[in-house]
């Protein structure tokens, strides 16, 4: 897998397939990116399980916060990592040793660990690094264009609407 660039169909396939997300490093601080992404993914219908030892037992946006991956209700479809690259490598190692494998491991903007990615992929896990699922969802739904951002997609098809105003779903093809 080339981790310098990802096809839109690869990313869309992941965002379509995933229903549950364990978010490591979720923040209760409402101006932190890890709070923004949690809130956005919840609004798009994902079940998100915040993980933050300092907030364990409390709620963020109505979701119970867990101390670690061992405590979440089930094996998540995706683990989303808001930690630095070195910590991300350790997290991947722990996940592989635990045997409870997610379908996807996603590392946030600036987070990248190629060795860990290789090991995860060898275990059949899809990996995305140095990307943000909120930005990718915004790109592939067209919502990000409302902020003047270059989505790098063009389409003559109807955008997908969700309930309420200004609320879109994913459009375009996905890799199965």
């Amino acid at each position: 897998m080339n981790h310098d660039s990802y096809s839109d169909t690869y990313i869309k396939g992941i965002l379509d397939e995933v229903k549950t997300v364990a978010m490591i490093g979720a923040s209760a601080n409402t101006v932190r990116p890890s709070y923004f992404v949690l809130k956005y993914l919840l609004s798009k219908g994902y079940d998100v399980w915040p993980i933050n030892p300092g907030q364990a037992g409390k709620d963020i946006l109505g979701q119970t916060v867990y101390a670690s991956l061992d405590d979440v209700p089930d094996v998540p479809d995706m683990i989303d990592i808001f930690r630095n690259s070195e910590a991300a490598g350790q997290i991947v190692e722990q996940v592989l040793q635990s045997g409870k494998l997610p379908k996807v491991i996603w590392m946030q903007l600036t987070v990248r660990h190629d060795e860990a990615a290789k090991r995860a992929e060898a275990a059949g896990i899809k990996v995305v690094m140095d990307r943000c699922p909120k930005i990718e969802y915004g790109r592939l739904s067209g919502e990000i264009g409302w902020a003047g951002v270059n989505s790098k997609t063009i389409s003559a098809r109807r955008p997908t609407l969700k309930s309420g105003f200004q609320h879109r779903g994913l459009t375009g093809k996905s890799e199965s």
């Binding site: 409402t30 990000i144 264009g145 989505s151 200004q166």
Partner: peptide
């Protein structure tokens, strides 16, 4: 709070202008 994408007021964003920007 800039947490969601979308329009509030045309002084800040507007869907026609957004197409021009992109």
């Amino acid at each position: 709070g800039l947490q969601a994408f979308g329009n509030i007021y045309t002084r800040i964003t507007n869907p026609t202008t957004a197409v021009l920007e992109e």
